[in-house]
């Protein structure tokens, strides 16, 4: 196992941490959702990478090919992508409502407005 052979997994980790960092560090509600999407996407790549069988072809039935990659993680991740889209859509819908209610999508501005209300 050489380091380069795990290239996919390094990408997964970099993406995952980038997304996670954006969620934590950004105060803008839209950017947080962008970060969240990147975070989720990294997991999709993790699943797809693990399904590889060395020398295997894409899991599409065809004559002359006997070795296929594992199709199950692909199917699983289709479901996870749908879930990810639903989450992003719901998150953005909430941001629209927040913008209507507060007139801002910056976390500190919203926080200040809530403080004043009390």
């Amino acid at each position: 196992m050489n380091t380069l052979g795990l290239y996919n997994y390094w990408v997964v980790i970099v993406l995952m941490m980038t997304g996670f960092y954006i969620v934590i560090a950004q105060g803008n509600l839209i950017k947080k959702i962008v970060g969240l999407s990147i975070f989720q996407t990294s997991v999709f790549i993790l699943y797809i990478s693990m399904s590889t069988v060395s020398g295997g072809s894409a899991p599409i039935l065809k004559e002359g090919i006997s070795l296929y990659s594992n199709p199950l993680p692909h199917v699983l991740i289709l479901t996870a992508i749908v879930v990810g889209i639903a989450t992003t859509a719901l998150g953005l819908a909430l941001v629209v409502r927040i913008k209507e209610a507060y007139g801002s999508i910056e976390e500190d501005v919203i926080h200040d407005k809530d403080e004043k209300e009390c």
């Binding site: 996670f20 969620v23 509600l29 947080k32 969240l36 975070f39 989720q40 997991v43 879930v83 989450t87 719901l90 998150g91 909430l94 941001v95 409502r97 927040i98 209610a101 507060y102 919203i110 809530d114």
Partner: peptide
């Protein structure tokens, strides 16, 4: 209250990280 929106948003972020 409009705070419900923020609460829901925060839960969405935390909950999605947990689920992921």
């Amino acid at each position: 209250s409009r705070k419900a929106l923020i609460a829901s948003y925060q839960y969405l972020i935390m909950g999605t990280i947990g689920a992921t």
